[in-house]
Amino acid sequence: MAFPNVTINKRTTFSQSRRSQWWEHNLRYVFVLPTVLMILGLSLFPLLYSLWVSFLQWDLQRPQTRFIGFKNYADVLRDVRMWEALGHTLFIIVVAVAVELLLGLLLAQTLSGNLPGKRFIMPLLLLPVVMAPLIVGYTWRMLWDTQYGPINQVLGWLIGRPVELVWLANPRTVYPAILITEIWQWTPFMFLILLAGLAAVNPELYEAAAMDGASAWQLFRQITLPLVWPVMALAILFRALDVFKIFDIIFSLTGGGPGSQTETASLYVYILGFKNFRLGYTAAMAYLLIILVSVVITLLWRQLGREQTR
């Protein structure tokens, strides 16, 4: 940072001179101070405060707020509904991210060449990503509607008789409905990242391999995959982290139902914290989830790193 060249009056007293030097030296910090204070106030303070809250019995239904050590943490670990919610979340992560990766790769591979109409297809493909997940959820809720939804209507046309599937209230169909909605919205994200990865691959490698008689599968397996892998790993991590927080789509499609069969970890935390106001317990649950995610992501990252090294 450059400062104006300031000439100090020779008659300035010694103390004035020191003050000026202090200002000159520290002015940059004074400018930065508001931002630092804001960041501390908005992120670090809530983080530390919620950690403190997680050790309290702070529950709207119970009059005394008091320190109870790790009791909230112990209770969370015994909470069957939390484990169920975590199971639902992990199931969605595994299936959704895998399918999104596969479809994203297929699309990226297809559109990485000079496909006619590519200019028009690309923006259309990206539209779902820019929509708010809550809007996506409510839109798809209408699409999945038993009586008036177009999905049952189209299926009915295909099989030649009325279809009355209750997609969102039937345990057998509710997960496919959630997954299709989720995959529809986020596959383009995967596609975009993988397309960037594919664009970075040197085309001469393909030309050389083709001259050596490599098949399409060999080109993909031996050239594309290893070179795109770092980008792909990053995309998997991004999406896995994002799906772990899945809330809006579940909230709008099923509300966690039928019963609590589609309740995810985020939705459960929301219900406990913002509907039931069990603040200490919810804070403890949030911290345990953060720890769990951090461990899983670290392990996953290392594994993906090893794969890359190989």
């Binding site: 039937n170 345990p171 139902g257 019963g259 069969q261």
Partner: peptide, 27 residues
């Protein structure tokens, strides 16, 4: 009574679970 919303929410999940084909007794 205090906690009415929590009681009702638990009951709501039981009722909708039975509507979805679950066993009423179990729910």
């Amino acid at each position: 009574i205090p906690g009415a919303r929590e009681y009702e929410e638990a009951l709501d999940r039981a009722v909708t679970s039975a509507y979805a084909g679950g066993d009423p007794q179990e729910a």
